[in-house]
Write a protein that binds this DNA or RNA. Sequence first.
DNA 1: ATGCCATGTCAACAGGTGTTGATATAGAAA
DNA 2: TTTCTATATCAACACCTGTTGACATGGCAT
Lengths: 212, 212
Amino acid sequence: MSLGEIVARRRQSAEATRAQMLETARGHFLRESYENVGLRDIARDVGVDVALVSRYFGSKADLFREVLHGDGKKAEKFRIAVSAEDLPAYLVSLFQETDCDDTRKHTENLLIVLRSASSPQAAAIVHDAIRNDVLEPISRILGGGEDAEMRAGMVLSILLGSTIVRSIMSMQPACAEGPPPEILAKLHALFRTALAELPAHYEPRGAALPVA
Amino acid sequence: MSLGEIVARRRQSAEATRAQMLETARGHFLRESYENVGLRDIARDVGVDVALVSRYFGSKADLFREVLHGDGKKAEKFRIAVSAEDLPAYLVSLFQETDCDDTRKHTENLLIVLRSASSPQAAAIVHDAIRNDVLEPISRILGGGEDAEMRAGMVLSILLGSTIVRSIMSMQPACAEGPPPEILAKLHALFRTALAELPAHYEPRGAALPVA
DNA sequence: ATGCCATGTCAACAGGTGTTGATATAGAAA
DNA sequence: TTTCTATATCAACACCTGTTGACATGGCAT
């Protein structure tokens, strides 16, 4: 179909092609890290010259930023609107297939951010996105404070880690339509643990044995 | 000191320079993803021409493989030698600064693998490394079986996620000498949850509210 | 039909990458 | 000292990247 679009490409509104580019770019950043997504790849998929991408978005970084944040006028702040009590269930729901566009987009953004987390060129953008869209909202739900920030960080860890293991390495077999219920249950338990109040003190039960 | 090495560079045994390159490369792959580490960067730090790196290691992929797996003759299999009961404590210990070279190397390998997890050129190598060095050992300790594999995957998720949040985004402030005890306690709890037997069934407590 | 402007193409740039073959040179062996 | 080999350098390769300015061209307004 993208091939069909290439062949059938005619003049159309600039806004339409721009939107097409944005969506295509989104798909690419979803699967490859920042530096591994080439403007030429995007252009080819849309059926357009490379130069047009640079022309419409200014720079690659700007394109990436717009993929994540939206245009700016839309101001897509993913405000999580759940109580602290419902938070674990909400977080688990991020892993389930959904027909809700907002939720899916939220999950996708997480994956995009993750994929480019160690890209020096995209580091600043990614850093901000995580802080604003994940860490702060969760921390606020938890009531703020240093402790809340730490627990939010733990949630983020599980979120990122699971997404890596699930998608970057495609290790859970046959989870085309979302993870099986055992995994969802595990995730729920993990989120509850991460969000729980701190235990008194850490005392390692067994001695930490070195590797052999 | 690396500058000093550059200036003072004299002829020395090939094995020594090779080892120096390997260590320098390790340091780079520890901080940047596969494609963002340039052979020229490594060569410059060692105080040597780029060509020598290619000459000694064959290709960049081979160099990366050797950084992870060792030479092959050394066969650095990180066999975890703890009981299932001590596993959480052991996993937590990976996050603490240690004087044990093996343990630290294990942690470093994890970070390296993580950094290049979404690099298409390194994907195969990374995939194998995780499977052999993390997933399989843990799964075996847990007694094997599909369930064990899933729980091992959860542990991996926490491991990767925490390492990301801790190091790629340097979000826990002032943790130069390992994370504070609260975080260690949290991690311990998380690992115990991840490793625990499955609960009966997943029933979300609260409805999964969409974002606003 | 005639301009004209939005839409898109083309060619080239400057900079970067890993890799290779020919070449230099230091230091040990003769 | 001369010879020779391990060690390292040099120059260049072919390829890829994002970005830019000049150019083409379809379609609408006049």
